[in-house]
Design a protein around this nucleic acid. Structure first.
Length: 1161
DNA sequence: TAACCTGTGGTTTTT
DNA sequence: CCACAGGTTA
């Protein structure tokens, strides 16, 4: 029959292990241990298809949970295409995150556990407010308790700087979440004889507050479903439950899994879980990787496991590295068979160490450019830069912008967290309910109408003191029936606000489609937000004229419109919101709409509101707005977009080329326990608050004060989690992988490479990208990637790339070399060709087109716009000669026609100090990265230690592990005696890493450096202006730049990244002087500079590209005009001239983008 | 002048 | 989402 044929086809693309997994007995339980790239999703979907086609299980009797809604959607898509020739209705499957599945169940059966109709889901923001308030208002005895020794859980953190400890709302929230992840109710928690009274108090109050709001929080969805299902068999027909990303489930989720799977039976049955313990990176959210073991223990029926080891993603070399990494953990990890790649690749992962932090991001981008330049090989889509911490993104973003690389940031700001979105939603909540105290208070404060935090706080108190509903309280204040002091402006704002809400409440009775539109629009207008966004936003106060042309292009305005569409469409045009809506409003609204009956209208409008709020919280993370926007961008950026993402955000994704910067202590791993990472003199801790239960010395003191555990004791796993994160990051790469670290992080603190970069791990890597080393290597790379090098290309020479790249590396990656020349700015460069082209027509970069120049030849550019873009002499061809690489000091000379000679900028005294003699030739420097001894150039002995974990956990039947595995059941856990490995796992960075660090400066060097520093200070005192200009102008000679033996650490005297980087890029200082001249007359702001129409002429995007330079220029200017009499107070605050604020401004101004995806073209 | 409002630049990961 | 600076109001 047809179904069988379809099945045949599905299974034909599975390997043996995958088939075993997919066809496993549907009534039993099976774990699929699916390492990275092993086809996890494929197995899952195939199994679902198998259950339905072969075992004839109805789709509605299967539950599939995924980690994200996006994953759910993808799975649906795959199933639909898989089963398109069958009669199966994929839409009948119950598929979604645990949260959305629970939501559906609760909407239908919630009343059975006394859930009132019309509950809604509270959002994260609101929770924060509630907890915050709770903490503020707690009775003294609770505060005393939580500071006392009697406490069981630490809820306190030291107040900023001082040693005073206060209760931290964040920790309280976290602990509450923790309790909830074990499905405990307040009473139950209090019943636990090891409970913490303060926490119990908070927990109880918090739950009460939610009850009063008739709201559930995220965890409540699971909690209430849990309670429901333990009492009643609501899902009697369920026959199989599948859980994706099982390593990220927490306690209550596993409980739910068993409950779902109980169906009509006494015991659970029919369970498939898929996941990888090594990729568990959500412990901070109470996920329990040991749920794999726990499941064995608790499963009432036979439970087996299948291990997938065929990796279809990465090259063997990448797997070697990542496997070595993950095996560093010898305790508490169940070792699995090593993954097998489908192909080898001669290019091992590259590890680069940079001596100074400002080198890292640009170097990565340049490296990327070389790879990208290879014709017909990569698109920008093929690159990803994965970071551990968000803050790392800034630098990378800057470098990308400077190199004009289009990029997107994954999960930048969620659309739903934008202030325009949240405030509109707040307003809607006010219309929806009388009781939305928090929404009302928030809405009153933004947009600014004279009611600020102080008034809001007093309002809150008075609202809470009354027995009537919050909105009634406001009304009575409006009418003067409740006395409330406020200044006139505030009072009238409040009156307006109440009137507005009342008017909107009236509108609810109109026919639904009219009502929704009118309410939304009225709120948007009357609240003043429309005014704000269309007329004011982004303008200075002086420029604000209400009668001027409205700016409908304002991104915030546009976002509001997007929200409006979403709001209006929630209930009707479902499709993507459909999962929620059609189940939530089961039978309540749908069919009968007697348009004339206001009651019906009111009901349906209210229902719509509720569905809207519900869908918000559940779906807030997928990219609603970008759908259409994305498509446009895709078109616009035909070469793709580089992805920048956190490691968490990258889970489940893959790219041909992956960069992981920041492989340093404090970043990977980031240990959060207490601000300082255990860098230098080790011995961190000392805050040992938790005199109670700590089985063993744990690395991080605060984060894990667990005593609420009721099941297994959780060992401190944070370091291992960091390692797993590193593992996840590495395994995203298909062909090429780069790790990098920096050994001088922004000056003061010498950073240390990550403790995970052990000798052994480094031995799997190389220090230079071999793929770009020779023409033959490049061709091999083409082969690996599966693309063809077209020899017919006459404008591109591989040989040239090899030469350029070689020079680039020899120059310590500080400059981008193209066609034999230094490229000072990317708009001078077209990486699509590197030989003299025969015809000059198409294919320029946009910028080149703008410049109306035919070529990537700097010379041409110079003639086009000499004083603007090529002021320096050395942009001529032939500059490749190393002696000419450094702009002579004349680079600071002003361009012709600019009369400026501002003294404060005078460079003359600098060379004497900072120039060749001061810094240069004699100085011994840090060992450059490519000479670091610990890095073996060749992989010496590839024999991967066949180490097996020592991890028979008492309770976990490891014998089951691998049971069904169809291949080499050889490697079972056994003890390892390997000392190298032991060392590798040594958590003490000072120990295990001492041989990894770059050579520190010798004592005399340090002396010299500090000498210079103090000297610099006195120098600048003499010219009575702050010193940043000095180093900015200084061009430290870089002697011997091509001799590998003598490497120079970039300007160790200078701590500031900005100034150093201006040292590096001479063209920047030239530009600087240019702008400096230009705006001498005025004390100009960067924003104004950025708006200078002149700049717009040459290139339609200088705003972005030059933002950094401009910011520097402005800084110079106002620093300079701050002549003499240093009014220190008036000195520009560093923040004001911070590059990134300028960048942000620039982005806003240029309205390039906002929200989730930021694209620079 | 004191209180308060407003704006602006800093933060681990997220369903 | 906290802290600080600068403006506004009573």
């Amino acid at each position: 029959m047809a179904d069988n044929a379809v099945l045949e086809q599905i299974f034909s693309s599975l390997n043996l292990q995958q088939q075993v997994a997919a066809k496993y007995d549907p009534d039993l339980a099976v774990q699929v241990i699916a390492g990275p790239g092993t086809g996890k999703t494929k197995v899952l979907t195939s199994r679902v298809a198998y259950l339905m086609l072969h075992h004839k299980i109805r789709p509605q009797d299967i539950i599939v949970t995924t980690f994200t809604n996006k994953a759910a959607k993808e799975m649906i898509d795959r199933l639909v295409s898989m089963l398109r020739d069958t009669s199966i209705r994929v839409s009948d499957l119950m598929i979604g995150t645990f949260h959305s599945v629970c939501l559906r169940i609760l909407s239908r059966y919630g009343h059975r556990i006394g859930l009132m109709k019309d509950w809604r889901i509270i959002d994260e923001k609101e929770i924060e407010v509630i907890v915050h308030n709770m903490v503020e208002k707690m009775p003294d005895q609770i505060r005393d308790y939580s500071l006392s020794l009697r406490r069981k859980v630490n809820l306190c953190l030291p107040k900023n700087g001082s040693d005073e400890w206060t209760v931290s709302p964040k920790l309280v929230k976290k602990q509450i979440e923790r309790i909830k992840s074990y499905a405990l109710l307040p009473e139950e928690y209090k019943g636990d004889n090891n409970h913490d009274s303060a926490l119990a108090y908070f927990f109880e109050n918090y739950q009460n507050e939610l009850n009063r709001l008739n709201a559930l929080d995220f965890d409540d969805l699971l909690m209430y479903t849990f309670r429901l299902l333990t009492r009643e068999k609501c899902l009697p027909r369920i026959r199989h439950v599948l859980v994706d990303e099982f390593q990220d489930t927490n306690g209550i989720q596993m409980d739910l899994m068993f409950l779902f799977a109980r169906g009509n039976h006494h015991l659970s049955r029919g369970i498939t879980v898929v996941g990888d313990p090594d990729q568990s990176i959500y412990a901070f959210r109470n996920a329990l990787a040991y749920n794999f073991q726990e499941m064995f223990r608790r499963c009432p029926i036979e439970c087996s496991s299948v291990v997938l080891v065929e990796n279809y993603r990465s090259s063997q070399k990448i797997l070697d590295t990542s496997e070595t990494l993950i095996r560093q953990q010898t305790e508490g990890r169940t070792d699995r068979l090593p993954l097998r790649a489908q192909y080898d690749c001669i290019f091992a992962p590259v590890y680069l160490n940079f001596p100074a932090s400002f080198l890292e991001a640009p170097s990565i981008v340049r490296e990327m450019l070389y790879l990208k330049s290879l014709p017909n090989l990569f698109s920008y889509d093929d690159f990803a830069i994965l970071v551990r911490q968000r803050r790392q993104i800034k630098k990378i973003e800057t470098a990308l912008i400077e190199h004009r690389v289009p990029y997107k940031i994954l999960k930048g700001h969620a659309f739903w967290e934008l202030k325009e979105t949240t405030s509109m939603i707040n307003l809607l909540k006010c219309v929806y309910s009388e009781n939305e105290k928090n929404a009302m208070i928030a809405a009153l404060q933004y947009p600014a109408r004279g009611i600020g935090p102080a008034t809001a706080e007093r309002l809150r108190t008075i609202i809470e003191s009354k027995d009537i509903s919050p909105f009634d309280t406001l009304k009575r204040i409006r009418e003067g029936r409740i006395k409330f002091d406020m200044i006139g402006k505030a009072r009238s704002s409040l009156i307006d606000f109440v009137n507005m809400i009342e008017a909107c409440k009236k509108l609810r009775e109109a026919p639904i489609d009219v009502a929704l539109k009118e309410i939304f629009d009225k709120l948007y207008e009357s609240s003043g937000m429309k005014q704000e966004y269309c007329y004011f936003d982004g303008k200075k106060k002086a420029d604000r004229k209400p009668d001027s042309e409205p700016n409908y292009l304002n991104p915030r305005h546009r976002n509001v419109l997007v929200l409006r569409d979403y709001f209006l469409g929630t209930n009707s045009g479902n499709e993507n919101g459909g999962v929620v809506t059609d189940s939530v409003d089961n039978t309540v609204v749908s069919g009968n709409n007697d348009k004339s009956d206001p009651m019906t209208n009111l009901n349906s409008v209210m229902e719509h509101f509720r569905n809207f709020f519900v869908s918000l919280t559940i779906y807030s993370n997928d990219t609603e707005e970008s759908e259409e926007a994305n498509a446009i961008k895709k078109q616009k950026y035909s070469e793709g977009l580089v992805t920048v993402s956190t490691i968490h955000g990258a889970k489940g994704l893959e790219w041909p080329v992956v960069f992981i910067p920041g492989c340093e202590e404090g970043i990977i791993p980031s240990l959060f326990g207490d601000g300082r990472s255990s860098n230098l003199e080790g011995d961190d801790d000392e805050d040992s608050e938790n005199e109670s239960d700590e089985e063993q010395k744990s690395e991080k003191p605060v984060t894990d004060n667990n005593s609420t555990k009721k099941k297994t004791v959780v060992p401190d796993d944070s370091l291992n989690e960091e390692r797993r994160m590193f593992f996840v990051a590495q395994t995203r790469a298909k062909h090429l992988l780069y790790l990098s670290s920096v050994t001088d992080r922004d000056g003061r603190v010498p950073a240390v490479p990550s403790r995970f970069l052990t000798k052994e791990l480094l031995s799997t890597m190389v220090d230079k990208q071999r793929a770009l080393e020779s023409v033959a290597a490049i061709k091999a790379l083409y082969g690996n990637v599966g693309k063809k090098w077209l020899t017919s290309n006459s404008t591109f020479s591989l040989k040239q790339v090899v030469d350029d790249y070689t020079e680039f590396v020899e120059n310590r990656r500080e400059r981008f070399i193209w066609a034999g020349s230094i490229v000072r700015a990317m708009y001078q460069c077209n990486i699509q060709r590197n030989t003299t082209p025969t015809n000059l027509t198409s294919e320029f970069t946009t910028a080149a087109v703008q410049l109306k120049t035919g070529l990537n030849s700097p010379e041409k550019i110079k003639t086009v716009s000499p004083e603007r873009y090529a002021p320096s002499t050395d942009t001529r061809p032939g500059v490749a000669s190393p002696t000419k690489k450094h702009a002579p000091m004349t680079s600071t000379q002003t361009p012709p026609g600019s009369p400026n000679k501002r003294k404060s900028f005078a460079p003359s005294y600098i060379p004497s100090r900072n120039g060749p003699n001061a810094l240069g030739v004699n100085r011994r420097l840090f060992a450059p990265s490519n000479e670091r001894p610990q890095l073996q150039k060749e992989k010496s002995s590839p024999t991967p230690l066949s180490l097996q974990g020592s991890s028979q956990k008492k309770s976990s039947p490891t014998r089951n592990w691998n049971m069904v595995s169809t291949s080499n059941e050889g490697a079972l856990p056994m003890k390892s005696e390997n000392s190298d490995l032991k060392k590798a796992a040594d958590p003490d960075p000072n120990h295990s890493n001492e041989d990894l660090m770059d050579f520190p400066a010798s004592d005399d060097e340090l002396m010299a450096i500090s000498d210079l520093k103090s000297k610099k200070v006195s120098d600048s005192a003499m010219v009575d202006r702050p010193d940043y200009g000095l180093t900015a102008v200084a061009e430290p000679k870089r002697p011997n730049i091509r001799k590998p033996g003598r490497k120079l650490v970039a300007a160790p005297i200078d701590i500031s990244e900005k100034s150093v980087s201006t040292n590096i890029n001479d063209e920047e200082s030239q530009q600087k002087s240019r702008f400096f001249v230009k705006d001498e007359s005025e004390n100009t702001t960067a924003a104004e500079l950025l708006h200078n129409p002149d700049d717009m002429i040459v290139d339609n995007r200088p705003i972005i590209a030059n933002a950094k330079t401009l910011a520097d220029a402005v800084r110079e200017t106002s620093a300079g005009s701050q002549k003499g009499r240093n009014k220190v107070k008036k000195e520009p605050t560093p923040s004001q001239y911070d590059i990134f604020s300028q960048l942000n401004n620039a982005k806003k101004k240029a309205k390039m983008n906002d929200g989730e995806i930021i694209v620079i073209d």
